[in-house]
Amino acid sequence: MSAGLVEVHGVHKSYGTLEVLAGIDLVVQPGEVTVVIGPSGSGKSTLLRVINHLERVDRGFVAVGGEVVGYERRGDTLRELREKEVLRQRTRIGFVFQSFNLFPHLTVLENLLEAPVHAQGRPRREVEAEARVLLERVGLSDKADARPRQLSGGQQQRVAIARALATKPEVLLFDEPTSALDPELVGEVLDVIKDLAHSGTTLVVVTHEMGFARELADTVVFMDGGRIVEQGPPAQVLDHPQQARTRAFLDKVL
């Protein structure tokens, strides 16, 4: 059973002449929590965006649950998928943005229903019942009819997490989920993510919250200059880094 397995093989990605990902190899086991750390510009966000094919890779490939993302394997060839099929694949990969990106003109509940009903074509009644359970899980069952701008940043991010969960993805990607929040609101969002960490969904989290990495990560990945410099359990990478660059970075942030 490979549901939730994320494989990244030899991925290269450049913007113009700038090489953002310079050969990334990474395997995330199903149900594991992987935290990606590193200085800004190291390619962390691009790696996440490559996993759900928001960015196309130049070389290499990404597979989620054993299925290549954005391509279809036919014998010796990888055929590029049509947009419609890519969109279908994305419903299995949840994405939480740093800036929430909730749809401001829709209510909280409508934000949650949009993808399951219109991307997955599931019956609205069934989805709505699930959505209300999800809202309760993130502690916002009373906000179903509010619009995003009426909520605090922390509440908005919790809605965004519930929205990402609504399609029942096997993998959840978090792109600096607490970086746009006031310090006092960070905790409530991290609590929700912690809750998810024990639920069996595979999580890949880009973050600067070292405490979170230490407490919950199965694997910590340190990136710099588009490469993975070092990876391993938090006790090893955060407390006994082998590489000088990792030590230099940790000295600055810890």
């Binding site: 759900n52 928001l54 947009e83 419609k84 969109l87 279908r88 694949q89 994305r90 419903t91 994405f95 943005f97 800036s99 990106n101 909730l102 749809f103 949009e114 993808a115 219109h118 991307a119 997955q120 929205r163 990402a164 399609t167």
Partner: peptide, 19 residues
């Protein structure tokens, strides 16, 4: 970010634009 969020959720393209 709105385009990206809609794409990341897998919402069909016509609906991304119209809704």
């Amino acid at each position: 970010g709105q385009h990206e969020a809609a794409a990341a959720l897998g919402i069909p393209r016509a609906r991304q634009q119209l809704r």
